[in-house]
Design a protein around this nucleic acid. Structure first.
Ligand SMILES: [Mn+2]
Ligand SMILES: [Mn+2]
Ligand SMILES: [Mn+2]
Ligand SMILES: [Mn+2]
Lengths: 152, 152
DNA sequence: TAGAAAAGTTAGCCTATGCTAAGTTTATTA
DNA sequence: TAATAAACTTAGCATAGGCTAACTTTTCTA
Protein backbone atom coordinates (compact mmCIF):
# COMPACT_ATOMS: atom_id res chain seq x y z
CA UNK A 1 0.00 0.00 0.00
CA UNK A 2 1.35 3.42 -0.89
CA UNK A 3 2.07 5.91 1.83
CA UNK A 4 -0.50 8.70 1.78
CA UNK A 5 0.97 12.18 1.50
CA UNK A 6 1.33 13.45 5.04
CA UNK A 7 -0.39 16.82 4.94
CA UNK A 8 1.02 17.91 8.21
CA UNK A 9 -0.95 20.53 9.99
CA UNK A 10 -0.17 22.43 13.12
CA UNK A 11 -2.67 22.63 15.94
CA UNK A 12 -3.77 26.11 17.03
CA UNK A 13 -1.08 27.33 19.48
CA UNK A 14 -3.45 27.54 22.45
CA UNK A 15 -4.78 24.04 21.96
CA UNK A 16 -1.36 22.51 21.58
CA UNK A 17 -0.11 24.45 24.58
CA UNK A 18 -2.97 23.04 26.66
CA UNK A 19 -1.92 19.53 25.64
CA UNK A 20 1.69 20.10 26.67
CA UNK A 21 0.61 21.70 29.94
CA UNK A 22 -1.47 18.63 30.64
CA UNK A 23 1.52 16.38 30.03
CA UNK A 24 3.68 18.52 32.30
CA UNK A 25 1.15 18.20 35.10
CA UNK A 26 1.16 14.42 34.63
CA UNK A 27 4.95 14.46 34.85
CA UNK A 28 4.83 16.27 38.15
CA UNK A 29 2.88 13.34 39.58
CA UNK A 30 5.03 10.56 38.15
CA UNK A 31 7.53 10.22 40.97
CA UNK A 32 4.79 10.57 43.58
CA UNK A 33 2.73 7.82 41.97
CA UNK A 34 5.67 5.46 41.56
CA UNK A 35 6.76 6.03 45.16
CA UNK A 36 3.38 5.45 46.82
CA UNK A 37 2.77 2.42 44.64
CA UNK A 38 6.14 0.96 45.64
CA UNK A 39 5.60 1.73 49.32
CA UNK A 40 2.24 -0.01 49.19
CA UNK A 41 3.78 -3.04 47.46
CA UNK A 42 6.63 -3.23 49.94
CA UNK A 43 4.27 -3.11 52.88
CA UNK A 44 2.08 -5.78 51.29
CA UNK A 45 4.95 -8.09 50.33
CA UNK A 46 7.62 -7.47 52.94
CA UNK A 47 5.62 -6.22 55.88
CA UNK A 48 7.20 -2.77 55.83
CA UNK A 49 8.65 -0.19 53.50
CA UNK A 50 12.30 0.62 54.17
CA UNK A 51 14.12 3.40 52.43
CA UNK A 52 16.97 1.13 51.45
CA UNK A 53 14.60 -1.24 49.64
CA UNK A 54 12.94 1.64 47.86
CA UNK A 55 16.33 2.83 46.65
CA UNK A 56 17.16 -0.66 45.42
CA UNK A 57 13.88 -1.09 43.59
CA UNK A 58 13.93 2.39 42.09
CA UNK A 59 17.57 2.17 41.05
CA UNK A 60 18.56 5.42 42.74
CA UNK A 61 20.69 6.32 45.75
CA UNK A 62 19.38 6.46 49.31
CA UNK A 63 19.79 10.23 49.59
CA UNK A 64 17.62 10.65 46.50
CA UNK A 65 14.85 8.59 48.08
CA UNK A 66 15.30 10.42 51.37
CA UNK A 67 14.86 13.79 49.70
CA UNK A 68 11.84 12.75 47.66
CA UNK A 69 10.20 11.18 50.71
CA UNK A 70 10.64 14.48 52.53
CA UNK A 71 8.65 16.15 49.78
CA UNK A 72 5.98 13.44 49.86
CA UNK A 73 5.68 13.88 53.60
CA UNK A 74 5.44 17.65 53.18
CA UNK A 75 2.65 17.08 50.65
CA UNK A 76 0.81 14.63 52.87
CA UNK A 77 1.28 11.34 51.04
CA UNK A 78 3.55 9.57 53.51
CA UNK A 79 4.44 9.52 57.14
CA UNK A 80 7.64 8.48 58.80
CA UNK A 81 9.85 9.04 61.79
CA UNK A 82 13.58 9.49 61.26
CA UNK A 83 15.38 6.14 60.84
CA UNK A 84 12.03 4.31 60.78
CA UNK A 85 10.06 2.65 58.03
CA UNK A 86 7.64 4.52 55.82
CA UNK A 87 3.84 4.61 56.00
CA UNK A 88 1.20 5.89 53.62
CA UNK A 89 -1.32 8.46 54.78
CA UNK A 90 -4.94 7.88 53.71
CA UNK A 91 -4.27 10.28 50.84
CA UNK A 92 -1.14 8.30 49.90
CA UNK A 93 -2.93 4.97 50.16
CA UNK A 94 -5.73 6.20 47.93
CA UNK A 95 -3.24 7.38 45.32
CA UNK A 96 -1.35 4.08 45.55
CA UNK A 97 -4.49 2.08 44.90
CA UNK A 98 -5.60 4.12 41.92
CA UNK A 99 -2.07 4.18 40.50
CA UNK A 100 -1.75 0.44 40.79
CA UNK A 101 -5.15 -0.10 39.20
CA UNK A 102 -4.16 2.05 36.26
CA UNK A 103 -0.75 0.41 36.01
CA UNK A 104 -2.37 -3.03 35.97
CA UNK A 105 -4.78 -2.09 33.21
CA UNK A 106 -1.98 -0.75 31.03
CA UNK A 107 0.17 -3.81 31.70
CA UNK A 108 -2.59 -6.31 31.02
CA UNK A 109 -3.61 -4.38 27.95
CA UNK A 110 -0.13 -4.61 26.46
CA UNK A 111 -0.11 -8.34 27.15
CA UNK A 112 -3.51 -8.64 25.47
CA UNK A 113 -2.03 -6.78 22.48
CA UNK A 114 0.54 -9.56 22.14
CA UNK A 115 3.51 -7.68 23.60
CA UNK A 116 6.04 -9.74 25.55
CA UNK A 117 5.96 -9.69 29.33
CA UNK A 118 9.34 -7.96 29.65
CA UNK A 119 8.31 -5.20 27.26
CA UNK A 120 4.89 -4.85 28.85
CA UNK A 121 6.55 -4.33 32.22
CA UNK A 122 8.97 -1.76 30.87
CA UNK A 123 6.55 0.19 28.76
CA UNK A 124 3.70 0.18 31.25
CA UNK A 125 5.95 1.78 33.87
CA UNK A 126 6.17 4.88 31.71
CA UNK A 127 2.85 4.73 29.85
CA UNK A 128 0.72 4.42 32.99
CA UNK A 129 1.15 8.07 33.90
CA UNK A 130 -0.25 9.33 30.61
CA UNK A 131 -3.35 7.22 30.11
CA UNK A 132 -6.56 9.16 30.77
CA UNK A 133 -9.73 7.64 32.18
CA UNK A 134 -11.18 7.48 28.69
CA UNK A 135 -8.18 5.62 27.31
CA UNK A 136 -8.07 3.26 30.30
CA UNK A 137 -11.71 2.50 29.69
CA UNK A 138 -10.99 1.60 26.08
CA UNK A 139 -8.04 -0.55 27.19
CA UNK A 140 -10.18 -2.31 29.75
CA UNK A 141 -12.88 -3.09 27.20
CA UNK A 142 -10.27 -4.60 24.98
CA UNK A 143 -8.85 -6.76 27.77
CA UNK A 144 -12.31 -8.01 28.65
CA UNK A 145 -13.33 -8.74 25.09
CA UNK A 146 -10.12 -10.71 24.65
CA UNK A 147 -10.59 -12.75 27.79
CA UNK A 148 -14.19 -13.51 26.69
CA UNK A 149 -12.95 -14.71 23.32
CA UNK A 150 -10.25 -16.83 24.90
CA UNK A 151 -12.39 -18.45 27.57
CA UNK A 152 -15.78 -18.58 25.82
CA UNK B 1 -17.48 -11.43 37.41
CA UNK B 2 -15.71 -11.60 40.75
CA UNK B 3 -12.43 -9.83 41.20
CA UNK B 4 -9.62 -12.35 41.51
CA UNK B 5 -7.51 -11.97 44.63
CA UNK B 6 -4.60 -9.78 43.65
CA UNK B 7 -1.59 -11.71 44.90
CA UNK B 8 0.70 -8.81 44.57
CA UNK B 9 4.31 -9.69 44.09
CA UNK B 10 7.33 -7.51 43.97
CA UNK B 11 9.80 -7.75 41.13
CA UNK B 12 13.41 -8.56 42.05
CA UNK B 13 15.00 -5.21 42.98
CA UNK B 14 17.52 -5.28 40.13
CA UNK B 15 14.91 -5.97 37.50
CA UNK B 16 12.57 -3.28 38.72
CA UNK B 17 15.45 -0.83 38.98
CA UNK B 18 16.34 -1.51 35.35
CA UNK B 19 12.76 -0.70 34.35
CA UNK B 20 12.80 2.61 36.22
CA UNK B 21 16.21 3.48 34.79
CA UNK B 22 14.82 2.86 31.33
CA UNK B 23 11.89 5.19 32.00
CA UNK B 24 14.27 7.88 33.31
CA UNK B 25 16.32 7.68 30.12
CA UNK B 26 13.12 8.07 28.08
CA UNK B 27 12.23 11.13 30.15
CA UNK B 28 15.57 12.72 29.39
CA UNK B 29 14.66 12.61 25.70
CA UNK B 30 11.10 13.89 26.00
CA UNK B 31 11.76 17.60 25.69
CA UNK B 32 14.27 17.02 22.92
CA UNK B 33 11.80 14.94 20.94
CA UNK B 34 8.93 17.37 21.41
CA UNK B 35 11.12 20.31 20.43
CA UNK B 36 12.56 18.84 17.23
CA UNK B 37 9.15 17.57 16.21
CA UNK B 38 7.65 21.02 16.71
CA UNK B 39 10.51 22.72 14.85
CA UNK B 40 10.02 20.36 11.93
CA UNK B 41 6.27 21.04 11.92
CA UNK B 42 6.74 24.79 12.09
CA UNK B 43 9.18 24.75 9.19
CA UNK B 44 6.80 22.56 7.18
CA UNK B 45 3.67 24.61 7.94
CA UNK B 46 4.91 28.15 8.43
CA UNK B 47 8.10 28.18 6.42
CA UNK B 48 10.29 28.75 9.46
CA UNK B 49 10.55 27.97 13.16
CA UNK B 50 10.56 31.06 15.36
CA UNK B 51 11.21 30.91 19.06
CA UNK B 52 8.10 32.92 19.86
CA UNK B 53 5.90 30.40 18.03
CA UNK B 54 7.55 27.52 19.81
CA UNK B 55 6.84 29.17 23.15
CA UNK B 56 3.22 29.68 22.17
CA UNK B 57 2.76 26.08 21.03
CA UNK B 58 4.57 24.60 24.01
CA UNK B 59 2.81 26.82 26.52
CA UNK B 60 6.01 28.05 28.16
CA UNK B 61 7.83 31.39 28.28
CA UNK B 62 10.31 32.51 25.66
CA UNK B 63 13.29 32.35 28.03
CA UNK B 64 12.45 28.71 28.75
CA UNK B 65 12.53 27.89 25.05
CA UNK B 66 15.69 29.93 24.59
CA UNK B 67 17.48 28.00 27.29
CA UNK B 68 16.36 24.59 26.07
CA UNK B 69 17.34 25.45 22.50
CA UNK B 70 20.81 26.32 23.76
CA UNK B 71 21.07 22.80 25.13
CA UNK B 72 19.75 21.26 21.90
CA UNK B 73 22.32 23.25 19.95
CA UNK B 74 25.06 22.14 22.34
CA UNK B 75 23.94 18.55 21.78
CA UNK B 76 23.84 18.93 18.01
CA UNK B 77 20.10 18.76 17.30
CA UNK B 78 19.52 22.32 16.15
CA UNK B 79 21.30 25.24 14.65
CA UNK B 80 20.57 28.92 14.96
CA UNK B 81 22.10 32.36 14.95
CA UNK B 82 21.08 34.84 17.66
CA UNK B 83 17.77 36.54 16.87
CA UNK B 84 17.25 34.24 13.86
CA UNK B 85 14.95 31.33 13.21
CA UNK B 86 15.81 27.78 14.17
CA UNK B 87 17.03 24.95 11.95
CA UNK B 88 17.39 21.23 12.50
CA UNK B 89 20.73 19.54 11.98
CA UNK B 90 20.65 16.19 10.13
CA UNK B 91 20.69 14.53 13.55
CA UNK B 92 17.76 16.71 14.66
CA UNK B 93 15.83 16.09 11.46
CA UNK B 94 16.28 12.35 11.83
CA UNK B 95 15.01 12.46 15.41
CA UNK B 96 12.08 14.65 14.35
CA UNK B 97 11.03 12.17 11.68
CA UNK B 98 11.23 9.13 13.93
CA UNK B 99 9.48 10.97 16.76
CA UNK B 100 6.65 12.06 14.51
CA UNK B 101 6.27 8.55 13.10
CA UNK B 102 5.99 7.14 16.59
CA UNK B 103 3.61 9.91 17.70
CA UNK B 104 1.39 9.24 14.66
CA UNK B 105 1.21 5.53 15.38
CA UNK B 106 0.22 6.12 18.99
CA UNK B 107 -2.35 8.73 18.00
CA UNK B 108 -3.91 6.62 15.25
CA UNK B 109 -3.89 3.62 17.52
CA UNK B 110 -5.88 5.44 20.20
CA UNK B 111 -8.37 6.54 17.55
CA UNK B 112 -8.63 2.93 16.34
CA UNK B 113 -9.32 1.92 19.96
CA UNK B 114 -12.35 4.19 19.92
CA UNK B 115 -10.90 7.04 21.97
CA UNK B 116 -12.08 10.55 21.10
CA UNK B 117 -9.85 12.78 19.02
CA UNK B 118 -9.27 15.28 21.83
CA UNK B 119 -8.22 12.55 24.25
CA UNK B 120 -6.10 10.83 21.63
CA UNK B 121 -4.23 14.06 21.04
CA UNK B 122 -3.68 14.66 24.74
CA UNK B 123 -2.71 11.16 25.70
CA UNK B 124 -0.51 10.48 22.69
CA UNK B 125 1.61 13.54 23.53
CA UNK B 126 2.70 11.83 26.73
CA UNK B 127 2.44 8.17 25.76
CA UNK B 128 4.57 8.48 22.63
CA UNK B 129 7.80 8.73 24.61
CA UNK B 130 7.28 5.43 26.38
CA UNK B 131 6.22 3.09 23.59
CA UNK B 132 8.99 0.68 22.57
CA UNK B 133 9.50 -0.64 19.05
CA UNK B 134 7.77 -3.87 20.03
CA UNK B 135 4.72 -2.05 21.37
CA UNK B 136 4.59 0.26 18.35
CA UNK B 137 4.66 -2.79 16.15
CA UNK B 138 1.69 -4.27 17.97
CA UNK B 139 -0.14 -0.94 17.75
CA UNK B 140 0.55 -0.72 14.04
CA UNK B 141 -0.75 -4.23 13.41
CA UNK B 142 -3.92 -3.30 15.20
CA UNK B 143 -4.38 -0.13 13.16
CA UNK B 144 -3.88 -2.05 9.93
CA UNK B 145 -6.21 -4.88 10.88
CA UNK B 146 -8.86 -2.31 11.75
CA UNK B 147 -8.50 -0.41 8.52
CA UNK B 148 -8.73 -3.71 6.59
CA UNK B 149 -11.92 -4.60 8.43
CA UNK B 150 -13.40 -1.17 7.81
CA UNK B 151 -12.54 -0.93 4.11
CA UNK B 152 -12.69 -4.63 3.10
C1' DT C 1 27.63 -6.19 75.25
C1' DA C 2 31.14 -4.06 72.34
C1' DG C 3 32.43 -3.56 67.68
C1' DA C 4 31.14 -3.86 62.98
C1' DA C 5 27.83 -3.47 59.48
C1' DA C 6 23.78 -1.60 57.69
C1' DA C 7 20.53 2.02 57.33
C1' DG C 8 19.42 6.65 57.24
C1' DT C 9 20.55 11.67 57.23
C1' DT C 10 22.83 15.86 55.94
C1' DA C 11 25.61 18.84 53.17
C1' DG C 12 26.90 20.21 48.93
C1' DC C 13 27.10 19.67 44.19
C1' DC C 14 24.91 19.15 39.32
C1' DT C 15 21.43 19.46 35.30
C1' DA C 16 16.86 20.23 33.43
C1' DT C 17 13.10 22.99 33.15
C1' DG C 18 10.12 26.37 34.79
C1' DC C 19 9.45 31.62 35.94
C1' DT C 20 9.88 37.19 35.91
C1' DA C 21 12.26 41.40 35.06
C1' DA C 22 15.11 44.01 32.38
C1' DG C 23 17.94 44.89 28.45
C1' DT C 24 19.08 44.40 23.32
C1' DT C 25 18.10 43.61 18.59
C1' DT C 26 15.06 43.33 14.73
C1' DA C 27 10.89 44.44 12.33
C1' DT C 28 6.89 47.27 11.56
C1' DT C 29 4.50 51.38 10.80
C1' DA C 30 3.31 56.09 11.03
C1' DT D 1 13.31 57.26 8.69
C1' DA D 2 12.27 57.73 13.52
C1' DA D 3 9.51 55.84 16.92
C1' DT D 4 7.19 51.90 18.50
C1' DA D 5 6.34 47.17 18.88
C1' DA D 6 7.77 42.58 18.70
C1' DA D 7 11.19 39.15 19.24
C1' DC D 8 14.99 37.50 21.54
C1' DT D 9 18.55 37.33 25.17
C1' DT D 10 20.44 37.58 29.70
C1' DA D 11 20.39 37.53 34.62
C1' DG D 12 18.67 35.75 38.53
C1' DC D 13 15.60 32.88 40.99
C1' DA D 14 12.99 28.40 42.12
C1' DT D 15 11.91 23.32 42.33
C1' DA D 16 12.60 18.43 41.21
C1' DG D 17 15.48 14.83 41.09
C1' DG D 18 19.94 12.98 40.33
C1' DC D 19 24.82 12.19 42.58
C1' DT D 20 28.99 11.48 46.24
C1' DA D 21 31.09 12.08 50.67
C1' DA D 22 30.78 12.26 55.37
C1' DC D 23 28.30 11.69 59.50
C1' DT D 24 24.78 9.62 62.82
C1' DT D 25 21.75 6.10 64.32
C1' DT D 26 20.19 1.52 64.49
C1' DT D 27 20.78 -3.30 64.08
C1' DC D 28 23.31 -7.37 64.01
C1' DT D 29 26.72 -10.55 65.58
C1' DA D 30 30.87 -12.35 67.60
MN1 LIG E 1 3.17 2.31 38.47
MN1 LIG F 1 5.60 4.48 36.58
MN1 LIG G 1 5.42 14.07 19.79
MN1 LIG H 1 5.33 14.44 23.48
Amino acid sequence: MKQAITRRQLQPPNKQAAVFQHVRRAHQMEATEDYVELIDDLIACEGEARLVDMARHLGVSQPTVSKTLARLQREGYVNSQPYRSIFLTPKGKKLAISSRKRHDIVFKFLIAMGVSEATAKRDSEGLEHHASAETLHAFNNFIESRSRTASG
